[in-house]
């Protein structure tokens, strides 16, 4: 058990080091950091001073060590574009993205799970077939087109919901939340729906497939033989066994949703990390890009590791192999 956890931890650290190496090489070798950070008419002394300050005159291995120690402490240098500390910019934007992803995940679960259960319990029903067709189309429509359609219908034509920004926000410590005001909640609806819709189809298909499989298993048959009501069998016995894999997949998808938030945030001008990243990409703002890369990689690696460890805790067969 401990050996497995250790092995898994070491693996994660290696992946993070590889990502850090990529992020570092981006910063070090693409363009000249000194040129990007100083105005064009800067004197040679200024350049030399900044070069020494950044440690660019030292061997590459020393520089990489400095980069990693900095990154561990949340230091990613200064943005080329805004001339501000990258860590500060990301900390400012992080709450917006996390609130968006959370709302989208809740929406996807609340809609996807009941739809999947329905489709599994009535596999030949008309409504189930409709749900299947809709989900097929849903997968083929690019998310940004969905977002544009949502804006066109609910903001432009019906004028019900705002189409950009977060609305009014409330500052709690360093966290700026939109959950506490009416306009903040209203602004959240469309972006969360856009980000969540793709996951709805995914969750629905998954729940449907898992549940149909569980419904065919022996213990469900025995539960029926015992004379339990349909309701007790479906929701008391089958559903619990269906949801375990669903929760792990949704967990894994959280990382993907943070990445897909880039598109949502662009469509709705949502002031989160994704918008920051896309601005950095189009400007070539390497420090912001490398910081975002390290952050997202950390989220992915952490989620993957937690899921692996969860499986290990749940599935006794795995402990034999390790």
């Amino acid at each position: 058990m401990i050996a497995f956890i250790l092995k898994r931890l070491i693996q994660s650290v290696i992946v993070m080091l590889a990502v850090a190496l990529i992020a570092f090489s981006m910063f070090r070798f693409i363009g000249d950091p000194v040129n990007s950070m100083l105005p064009e008419n800067a004197s040679a002394e200024d350049r030399q001073e900044l070069r020494e300050q950044l440690g660019l005159d030292q061997p590459v291995t020393v520089q990489f060590t400095r980069f990693v120690t900095g990154a561990v402490q949340g230091e990613f240098g200064i943005s080329y574009r805004n001339k501000r500390a990258v860590a500060e910019m990301i900390a400012e934007r992080l709450p917006a993205t996390l609130e968006l992803v959370l709302a989208a995940a809740v929406f996807a679960l609340l809609l996807g799970v009941p739809m999947g259960i329905y489709a599994a319990l009535h596999p030949k029903g008309v409504l189930s077939n409709m749900l299947n067709v809709i989900s097929l189309i849903g997968i083929s429509v690019p998310t940004f087109v969905t977002g544009i359609l949502l804006i066109l219908v609910f903001s432009v034509w019906l004028n019900w919901l705002p189409s950009f920004g977060r609305g009014e926000t409330v500052q709690i410590g360093w966290w700026r939340t939109g959950f506490l005001t009416v306009s903040g909640l209203k602004s959240l609806i469309l972006p969360a729906v856009m980000l969540g819709l793709f996951q709805v189809t995914l969750i629905m298909r998954l729940v449907r497939a898992e549940m149909m499989e569980v419904l065919r298993s022996d213990f469900v048959r025995f539960a029926r033989a015992r004379g339990l009501t349909n309701r007790a069998v479906n929701f008391g016995h089958a559903l619990g066994n269906t949801l375990m894999p669903v929760i792990t997949i949704v967990g894994l998808q959280l990382g993907a949703m943070i990445a897909f938030a880039i598109i949502t945030e662009t469509v709705f001008q949502w002031p989160g990390m994704g918008l920051l990243f896309i601005q950095a990409v189009s400007f070539g703002d390497i420090p912001v890009m490398s910081a975002y890369l390290v952050m997202v990689a950390l989220v992915f690696v952490a989620i993957n590791m937690i899921v692996d460890l969860l499986y290990f805790a749940i599935d006794p067969r795995l402990s034999v192999r390790a």
Binding site: I30, F277, V281, S282, M289
Partner: peptide
């Protein structure tokens, strides 16, 4: 894809 294009654009 975003990252690769960002790196190339930066270069």
């Amino acid at each position: 894809a975003l990252l690769v294009s960002g790196i190339v654009r930066g270069a």
